[in-house]
Each structure stands twice: as structure tokens, then as C-alpha cells.
């Protein structure tokens, strides 16, 4: 009964939701939340995610697990406020609770134990790449991280990456690291170094560009996809993506796939399904606050 891997029926965290231990602002719109979720923390692996639901009426939102502490029973979520639901989450104060946290969901990353891996992160994709890169290092691979953002302020996890791997920072405006996009830096690495595998997470356009760059050279590339998702257990089919011409569900078959088979145009298009609704929700919040 004390096995922490099996759910406890009397656990207070289950009855009352999941406490937010801390909320740190990383950039203007990106926050790092430490959340109590002992069942998830005990078993999660790099590449996996949770679905959180703040409370009654709230959306179910998939969020990658950036870090975990099984001793403390906590997980780290890095959240960018892009709509109403994510704005509600980053507004939580320590001691507040998230009603539902379910996971870990998705398949763990397929990690190499030798050779050179380039880990490419764009924006909050750094939260996906961070656990992958660190674990790769632990497993024995040589890791080069490429982290990109629009400006220096948006570069996430730079100190953490630098602590265990070679780091290349790219910003669109050149305010930190080299000026330009991550694919330029990746292309340079592919030209000058022997690269065995590339892991990439970030905006769909970035992952598509990474896939195009590595496909030309035949370098194995794995991307972590972020489609619209509801249940996260394979039930709704909303997260379907096309990989090698076949329909796959990101929640149970992924979220990581061979980048060279992914239909990025379709993914990008499907992500725009609720653009109109998101604007309505945002204005609804404004009315509510006025």
C-alpha cells in the first residue's frame, strides 16, 4: 500500500486537486510552474506530457513535463500564455490548485545512447527538449543544443542547457547569440560536424524547416508534435496527424514522430481550427474583467 507508483485512495492531492508549489515568470508570457503530482512524477520519462484542467468549465490542455522530482512528488510545467486557458494557468499563485492533472501521457522519447545528437528548440519547445537533451547526455550521447527565440528575452533554459551540453543560441534580432533562425545554426552544424540524430520541438514551421534541412542529408530526425487534443488517451482522434501517409494519434502513438514523414502543412492547418473561437474567448475574458 505504500508503493508510490500506485494511486492512494486517501491522498489529499487527489481529493483537492494539485497544489502549485511555485510560479516563476521566465519571460513576458512564459511561466514555470512547479505542481504537486506524485503519481506522474514517479514514472514520467522524457517526451511525455500531462493534461491539466484548471477547474469546472476549464479546457483540458496538454503540457509537456519539463522536469520532475519523484522525491518531492512534483512536476515542472512551462506554460506560455497564448489564450484564455493558458493565461488562467500562469496567473495561479503558490498554494492555488489545479483540479485535474492526468499523465504521464504519450510514449517516452526514443533516445540514443551514443553518437552525436543535436537538440533544436524554438520558443517554449525548450521545455520539451530540455529533459530529452539531459537524458541523452546521461545515456552517453554527445549533445549539442540549439536554442532559438525572437529576442534574447525569449531564450529559455540557456543556463541549464549550458550546464551539460554544448549550446548555440539564436535570436531573430541578434540580441543574443547568433542572429538568425535555428535552422541556419543547424545547417552549419550538419555541414561541419558528424551528426547522428536530431531532436526538434517548437513552432510547426520551425520543425518543418528542420525536417527539410536534415532530410536532404539523410539525418534521422525526431520531432515532438503539439496538435489539438482533448482526452489524451486515444479516444477522440482530434490529435490525428499524418505520418508517412498514415493517420496516427499524437496522444498515444506520439507525441514524437520521424520528422521526415510528418505532414507539417496539415498539422499547422489543423492547429488553426479554433482561431476564431480563441478570439471570442479572449474578448469574453476582457468583458468579464471590465
Amino acid at each position: 500500500m505504500t508503493d508510490e507508483r500506485t494511486p492512494s485512495t486517501t491522498s489529499a492531492t487527489r481529493a483537492k486537486g494539485h497544489e502549485v508549489v511555485s510560479n516563476t515568470k521566465l519571460t513576458a508570457d512564459v511561466h514555470r510552474l512547479v505542481v504537486v503530482a506524485p503519481l506522474v512524477a514517479a514514472v514520467r520519462q522524457p517526451g511525455q506530457f500531462v493534461i491539466v484542467r484548471l477547474g469546472p468549465g476549464a479546457e483540458r490542455i496538454p503540457l509537456t513535463i519539463a522536469e520532475s522530482d519523484s522525491a518531492q512528488g512534483t512536476i515542472v510545467l512551462v506554460i506560455q500564455a497564448v489564450g484564455k486557458s493558458t493565461s488562467d494557468l500562469v496567473a495561479l499563485a503558490p498554494g492555488d490548485r489545479i483540479q485535474d492533472v492526468v499523465g504521464p501521457l504519450g510514449r517516452p522519447s526514443d533516445l540514443v545512447t551514443e553518437g552525436t545528437a543535436v537538440c533544436v528548440a524554438g520558443g517554449v519547445g525548450a521545455a520539451v527538449i530540455f529533459p530529452i537533451a539531459r537524458r541523452l547526455t546521461e545515456l552517453g550521447a554527445e549533445v549539442i543544443t540549439v536554442v532559438g527565440a525572437r529576442t534574447s528575452e525569449g531564450v529559455l533554459f540557456a543556463a541549464e542547457f549550458a550546464s551539460f551540453a554544448e549550446l548555440v543560441v539564436c535570436t531573430d534580432d541578434g540580441s543574443a547569440g547568433r542572429a538568425g533562425v535555428v535552422t541556419d545554426a543547424l545547417s552549419d552544424l550538419l555541414a561541419t560536424r558528424s551528426v547522428d540524430v536530431v531532436y526538434a520541438a517548437g513552432p510547426v514551421s520551425m520543425m518543418g524547416a528542420v525536417a527539410a534541412a536534415t532530410q536532404r542529408l539523410g539525418v534521422r530526425t525526431i520531432v515532438s508534435l503539439n496538435p489539438i487534443m482533448v482526452d489524451g488517451t486515444g479516444m477522440c482522434g482530434g490529435c490525428r496527424v499524418t505520418v508517412d501517409g498514415e493517420m496516427r494519434f499524437a496522444c498515444v502513438d506520439g507525441p514524437e514522430f520521424d520528422a521526415h514523414g510528418v505532414d507539417f502543412d496539415e498539422l499547422s492547418d489543423r492547429l488553426s481550427t479554433y482561431g476564431q473561437a480563441e478570439r471570442v474567448a479572449a474578448s469574453h475574458v476582457c468583458r468579464g474583467m471590465a
Binding site: 500506485t6 514514472v43 485535474d100 504521464p104
Partner: peptide, 9 residues
């Protein structure tokens, strides 16, 4: 609730 057998345990 929120326990996925096959994932959570």
C-alpha cells in the same frame, strides 16, 4: 479519476 492504467501505473 485522472489515472490511466497503462501510463500512470
Amino acid at each position: 479519476c485522472n489515472v490511466v492504467i497503462g501510463r500512470t501505473c
